[in-house]
Amino acid sequence: MKVMPLKTRHQATLAWWVVCILLAVLFLLPLYLMVTQAFKSPAEAAAIPPTLWPHSWSLDSFRRMGGEVASINISQHILNSLYVSLATVGAVVLVSTLGGYSFARLNFPGKGVWFFGLLVTFMIPFQAIITPLYLVMRALHLQNSLVGLALVYITYQLPFGLYLMRNAFGTIPREIPEAALLDGCSTLSSLTRVMLPIALPGVVTTALFAFFAAWNDFFAALILVTDQDRMTLPVTLSILQSGQFGTIDWGVLQAGVVVSAIPCVLLFLVLQRYYVSGLLSGALK
C-alpha cells in the first residue's frame, strides 16, 4: 500500500472533513428550519419574508394545535395515531413471533410453501389493492374506523415481521429449545421463557418497523378514515395544509411536522442498531 506523505494525508483529511460538514449542513438544514419554525411565536412564524433565526421562542404553535386553528384539535389526532401505531406494534409482534417461531422450529405439512405464500405480500404493494380493500373494510363494518386501519397496517407488516422472527429463531442452536422440551416445557413456554429472550433483538426490530409503518402512513389513512375526529396525524396535517379559503398557519403546520417526525428520529437514534440491521436483512431477502 502506498504511503502518502504526512502533509498530503493531513490535507486529504481536512478536505474530507470540509466536505462531510458541508453535506451535514445540507442534510440538517431542513430539520433545523422545521424546528425553528415550530418554536417561533405565531406572529413571527407568519412573517413574510421569513426569518431564518427565530427572534422569539414560544410554544404557542404547539398550543394552538389544541384547537384554535381551523377548529381542529390536533392533540386528538396525535392520540389517534398513537393508538393505531401501538396497536399495530403489539399485534405484529405477537403474530409474527408465533408465526416466525412455528416456521423456524415447528413442523407441519406444506410449511415451506405456506411460508412462501405468506411472503408473496412483499411482491404486491397495498396501493395496488386499496380499491377492493376499501370494500372489504366496508363489508366488515370497519370502514372509517381506527381498528380497521390498524388491521391493514398489521397485515402489511406481517410478512416482514414473520421473516425477521423466523430468522431470529432460526439462528438459535437446536440444543436450547430441545433442552427446554426435555425439561418438560410445553411449546408455548419454551417459546416465551427460553427462545424469546434470545430472539429479543428480532422482536425489537419488528416492533420498530411496525411502528414506523403505522405512524408514518398517509395513503391508507387518507382513504380508509374519513371522519375528521378519527383521522391520524398525517391526514390531519393535510387539512391544515390545504387551509380552504384562509391562511395557512405555517407555524402550526411545522409544529405538527415536528410532532410527527421527531419521535421517528429519536426512536431511530436510540435503536439505531436494530433499525439498520432490519434494513439490511430486508435487503438480503
Partner: peptide
C-alpha cells in the same frame, strides 16, 4: 406438533388471507 405449528401461523394466515389475498 403439526397442529400446534399450524395454530401458531393461523393468526398471520387469517389476517393476510382476509386483507391481502381476498382484496
Amino acid at each position: 406438533r403439526s397442529v400446534e405449528g399450524i395454530l401458531y401461523v393461523l393468526p398471520a394466515t387469517v389476517l393476510i388471507g382476509l386483507f391481502f389475498f381476498i382484496p
